[in-house]
Amino acid sequence: MVRVKSRYLLCEVNVSDRSHLLLLDDRSVGAAVKDAVARTHGDYGAALCSVRFCVKYLNAHTGIVFLRFPKRCYKLLWSALPFITSVEMRGQKIPCFLNCLHVGGTIRTCQKFLIRYNTQQLHRMLPKCKNEEEKQQVRRSILNCSQAWGNKEELEGEGESGEDEEE
């Protein structure tokens, strides 16, 4: 059996104010990507981007996005991503940029990477905690990450709680 091959880009949406991240939705990110590709690569890019491009997953709390591109032309489409300067979310134009963290051939490898990355973020968060209670909570989340290795649902929940603490 031969399967249709794709590349999954694991990107992080960076905004200046983290509370804007909650406005994210997959359609707006997809539209921003398509727009940037059309601007940099013209009709050819837009045509390539219309075939099997989609936003596979989006976490509004951590700002993580999975983008699927056809394997044949993912480099060309990826080269348009740095030119995204803003995403229009619910009528608001929010300046942001996409930072690509990982390129994978399957969603599974991206997920593995994401768990590792999120654990790392929790570790970075630990010294910033203000009181002991927060510290305990982050420590528990880190422990949960290593216990639930591969259990994505649980990690997401923990990632959220950690994120809220930082605010």
Binding site: N14, S16, L81, F97, N99, L101, V103
Partner: peptide, 8 residues
């Protein structure tokens, strides 16, 4: 917001 990631 004008910075980009190294892989990009």
């Amino acid at each position: 917001l004008e910075l980009r990631g190294p892989y990009d």
